[in-house]
Design a protein around this nucleic acid. Structure first.
Length: 649
DNA sequence: CAATTGCGGGAACTACCGCG
DNA sequence: CGCGGTAGTTCCCGCAATTG
């Protein structure tokens, strides 16, 4: 056990979790230490309680669906406001440099390993206009595979040449086949390309230099094989029509398409519906506040949807039932693999006429938690500092939630930090402390669930266990499929909505609670065993052993409590400095020197930034929109890290 | 070759309409 | 009020093309 604590270094968090009963007292103690009087604390608590009740009420009184009449307006306002903000940010960005969204994930790497597509889950940006305005002309003989292949080719071209100024692009035939499916043959690919080259589409673009329209083939493609006729070395050459390339090169607004679900889609309407919903949910963010269900409902008349999906409508009009059965239902089925949202078809709205005709087809979309791998690097830089500062200021010292494990099951500490930031709001002192507690619960619950799955046991109600997507065998499957980080995040989300292993006291019977707490200890022991086994397998040593070695060879000064950070009543800056000096004296000294030099440069930069900000605010005033009404603090947050910030999706 | 997808055709059912 | 027509529905069959 002593070993475990040394590796964790988060006793404070564990203590918090264990110490449920005195939790309330702890809040008070913390606040008193910060110099607040009891009256002020009471006032603060009353305020937070009122806020909690307001949220609760808002949750209970929330409209059934966002697309009810009144809500359409709100929805539009939300959308337009965010688009407004985005275009302002983008305009700002463009002044400084050409901005092009990057492809997420290495596509060819994903295709070269079996199962790599789902694990790496590459995503490719597409201009929103392109997602919503493409119309097929003439015979529409394209299959789902053809459409998916086309997306792959566009994605590859963009990944390798974001400027889209190359005439010709190349992709190994092997990669293309791997994308279409494991049983795909060269013959299939050739037929597919034949259909694609014969299909003409039209775009209707509203550009800066007027409109552009016309009919172009989806692509022109041919195959080559190197001399020697080696199997699997054939290349697929293709060029994309100029309108497509032009649109891709300078996207004003764009959304990401996930390639893995695209490859798996079986119905061509699935791919088209996916593109449509991606365009419709453009710029919307998954909201972390409690009480927000992140549900959107889109309503279409059958004719409208049929047109947007390219479903053939005969001269006698649309047969709604057939359309729903043959296009909408399979399309919804195909969307199951999409990570960004989950889609369901709701009962349609029926009219009062004969046979009660379907007037509106309703599709419900639930936005999901963002993939933790995306923007992780960007966000971590900002968050890790903030987390340390906040926690130190609150005298609850949590370095990181490190749970070292065998790589296959090891959840990166950054994932937990991200979870904390995204799922658990911590805007106030009291909430911060409670959030620590909740996060600890989730981390522990994940360990228990993993242990439970690996040992094949079931600690809670077996029926309920089976109904969950991230328990037992399902959890292991998810880990294998998407890696431990995504699995941990999805598991946590499920736990938050339906607590089971992290359930509050009184939820389970005494035996179950005891079983869970025993399992936690066993899980930790098993985890340490796995971790050490994987280390010795690769010939590495634990961090603690490395540290001891350093101390014994005199490279580092020994101290009684190596994992104890300095504490005290100090300013944030002082606490942070002390923390950094403690963490790495050399780096701190260097930083001290740099700081003086940077101070001057920073002053200049700040002046420059200020002038830019004014310029931007001026723009907003001209538009007469609410953009500049945001509080100053928020504004600086948005622009301070602007280079790193991915403002949407 | 078998299964699935895409699509046409059509029988039976249902709610409403207009007529006598 | 009862009746048949109508325009929608559900449910089912079958064929060609594509996929496995």
């Amino acid at each position: 056990m002593d070993e475990i604590e040394d590796i964790e270094g988060d006793e404070a968090l564990d203590a918090l979790v264990r110490d449920q009963q005195s939790f309330h007292d702890l809040d008070r103690r913390l606040l008193r230490n910060r110099g607040m009087t009891d009256d002020e604390i009471d006032h603060l608590e009353a305020k937070e309680e009122a806020e909690r009740q307001r949220r609760q009420r808002a949750f209970e009184e929330r409209p059934a669906y966002i697309y009810s009449d009144e809500e359409i307006v709100r929805q539009e306002a939300w959308k337009s406001k965010s688009e407004d903000r985005l275009s302002a940010i983008l305009a700002h960005k463009r002044r400084r440099r050409d901005f092009r969204p990057s492809t997420r994930g290495d596509i060819s790497a994903a295709l070269s390993v079996p199962g790599g597509l789902e694990r790496i889950a590459p995503q490719s940006p597409r201009p929103v206009e392109m997602l919503e305005t493409v119309h097929v002309h003439g015979d529409d003989k394209l299959t789902a595979g053809d459409l998916a292949l086309h997306e792959l080719l566009v994605a590859t071209a963009y990944a390798e040449n974001p400027e889209m100024d190359q005439e010709r692009h190349v992709i190994p035939v092997r990669d293309a086949l791997a994308f279409i499916g494991e049983n795909a043959r060269l013959q299939h690919l050739q037929q597919s390309l034949k259909r694609l080259t014969k299909t003409f589409v039209s775009f209707d673009l509203q550009g800066s230099k007027g409109r552009a329209w016309g009919e172009v083939p989806l692509l022109v493609a041919w195959l080559t094989a190197p001399d020697g006729e080696q199997e699997g070395r054939e290349l697929l050459h293709y060029n994309l029509p100029i309108p497509v390339r032009r649109m891709m090169a300078r996207p004003e607004r764009f959304a990401y398409l996930e390639l893995a679900p695209l490859a798996a889609m079986q119905s061509k309407y699935g791919i088209r519906l996916y593109r449509l919903l991606t365009a419709l949910t453009f710029g919307m963010k998954w909201k972390k506040t409690y009480g927000d269900d992140n549900l959107l409902v889109f309503e279409f008349t059958p004719e409208e949807l049929a047109e947007r999906l390219g479903y053939p409508v005969g001269p006698e009009g649309l047969h709604t039932r057939k359309f729903r059965e043959r296009a909408v239902a399979p399309a919804i089925q195909d969307l199951l693999g999409v990570r960004r949202f989950r889609a369901r078809e709701l009962d349609p709205i029926r009219g009062t006429g004969r046979g009660s005709p379907v007037e509106k087809i309703r599709i419900e979309v639930e936005l999901c938690t963002p993939d933790p791998r995306i923007v992780q690097n960007q966000i971590m830089k900002r968050l890790s500092n903030r987390l340390v500062k906040q926690t130190l200021a609150n005298e609850v010292f949590i370095r990181t939630v490190v749970r070292p494990d065998e790589p296959r099951y090891c959840v990166a500490s950054s994932t937990w930090v991200r979870l904390r930031q995204q799922i658990l709001p911590a805007d106030t002192t009291l909430e911060l402390v409670r959030t620590n507690e909740l996060l600890g619960k989730l981390v522990n619950a994940f360990q228990v669930a993993l242990h439970e799955a690996l040992t094949g046991t079931c600690l809670t109600d077996p029926e309920e266990c089976k109904s969950r997507g991230f328990r037992g065998a399902a959890l292991l499957a998810e880990i294998d499929r998407t890696g431990p980080d995504v699995a941990a995040l999805e598991f946590s989300k499920e736990e938050l909505s339906r607590p089971s292993l992290s359930a509050p006291f009184g939820w389970h019977s005494t035996e179950v609670r005891r079983a869970i707490s025993d399992a936690l200890k066993a899980a930790d022991r098993a985890r340490i065993r796995r971790y050490k086994a994987s280390l010795s397998a690769s010939g590495e040593k634990t961090k603690l052993a490395q540290r001891r070695e350093k101390i014994s060879t005199g490279q580092e000064q020994a101290s009684g409590k190596v994992d104890q950070a300095p504490r005290g009543e100090k300013s944030h800056r002082q606490v942070n400095d002390e923390y950094e000096r403690w963490k790495s004296p050399e780096r701190f000294a260097k930083k001290e020197a740099e700081r003086a030099a940077q101070a001057e440069a920073e002053k200049l930069r700040e002046l420059e930034r200020e002038s830019r900000r004014r310029e931007l605010d001026h723009e907003d005033e001209v538009r007469g929109r609410g953009f500049s009404k945001r509080p100053a603090s928020m504004k600086s947050r948005v622009y301070a890290d602007e280079d790193d910030e991915i403002p949407f999706d």
